[in-house]
């Protein structure tokens, strides 16, 4: 035991010089770290802003306790006394299907275009230049939020479901292209090399090697996007007058002030969202990592 220990110390000591150097280097790096500094500054700024804004709010004659109580009562009516007045449950389901339809169309068109441009964005199937150009363009598309895309198209096409589909398509396209091209890039370069050596051309390699290897990822990502698009379509239905259950929700709350109906519609949306969420998380665990 003792011998072992002394050997251990001998060994440790022999590496000492090097480790001292490394330690010095490590300490040198430590004192100023740009990222952690930036984070600290941001947090302090946010704290000051929060305190300042609470202090300067115009509270009118609001009595906090009453306000909270009223809100809770409203919530109770909304969710425990949920009922439909202006339309039937069947009509509700019809409107949900309409919203699902918008989401589906947007996912489909976005997915198909993302597939083809994704091939050009994948480094192993494209050239570095083309790949970077496509990726740059698409990160711009993705940076613009969905609702903004819808509003942009609402201006040119007019408010309505068409603008909703086109707008949702754009963001879906950006989102799916990134996911797709990354799945394509998973394919081992050697496989592409092997099929090239057989005399296969680019399209043949795409459909005989790339697609079979990444199909499950593509389907999983598409479904996840469909789920996101449903929620987005609800919001967009209200914001851009695209129709569907989102529009009914908007009408019930902002036009008729019928909180019971708002509750009922929320339950309906929630039910669909939960079904989609469960399905997509099952798909996710099955296919992605």
């Amino acid at each position: 035991m003792q011998i072992q220990e002394s050997i251990y110390h001998l060994w440790i000591n022999s590496t000492k010089d090097k480790s001292v150097d490394l330690l010095a280097k490590y300490n040198e790096r430590k004192p100023f770290n740009k990222t952690s500094f930036a984070i600290k500054i941001t947090l302090i700024a946010l704290l000051i802003l929060t305190i300042y804004s609470f202090y300067t709010f115009d509270y009118k004659n609001l009595i906090i306790i009453d306000a909270v109580k009223d809100t809770l009562i409203n919530m109770r009516t909304m969710f425990f006394g949920a009922s439909l007045r202006n339309f039937t449950i069947l009509e509700g389901i019809r409107q949900v299907s309409f919203t699902l339809g918008i989401a589906f169309l947007a996912t489909l068109t976005g997915g198909i275009s993302a597939f083809f441009l994704g091939l050009l964005a994948a480094q192993n199937l494209s050239t570095k230049l083309v790949s970077n150009v496509v990726k740059g363009f698409v990160s711009f598309v993705r940076a613009v939020p969905t609702v903004l895309w819808v509003l942009i198209f609402a201006v040119s096409i007019g408010l309505g479901s068409t603008a909703a589909v086109v707008g949702l398509t754009f963001h879906s396209f950006g989102y799916l292209l990134k996911a797709f091209s990354e799945s394509f890039e998973e394919l081992d370069h050697g496989v592409i090399e092997a099929l090239t050596a057989c005399g296969a051309n680019w399209w043949q390699i795409v459909f005989q090697a790339v697609v079979p290897s990444s199909l499950s990822y593509l389907l999983a990502w598409t479904f996840i996007r469909f789920e996101i698009n449903f929620v987005e379509a609800v919001a967009v239905g209200a914001a851009a007058g695209a129709g569907g259950i989102g529009f009914e929700l908007f009408m019930a709350s902002a036009r008729y002030f019928n909180i019971r109906e708002v509750g009922a519609i929320t339950f309906l949306i929630l039910a669909v969202a939960i079904i989609l969420e469960l399905t997509s998380s099952r798909i996710k665990t099955k296919f992605i990592k």
Binding site: D188, V191, A200, V206
Partner: peptide, 30 residues
């Protein structure tokens, strides 16, 4: 190749047939 470079998700027969792709047009091959 050393690492075989097969399309792992496809069957043996499908991988073997890839050897014919050089003789096929884009449509039939794809």
């Amino acid at each position: 190749f050393q690492h075989y470079n097969l399309v792992n998700r496809l069957s043996v027969i499908e991988n073997v047939l890839h050897g014919r792709l050089g003789y096929k047009n884009t449509f039939n091959g794809s």
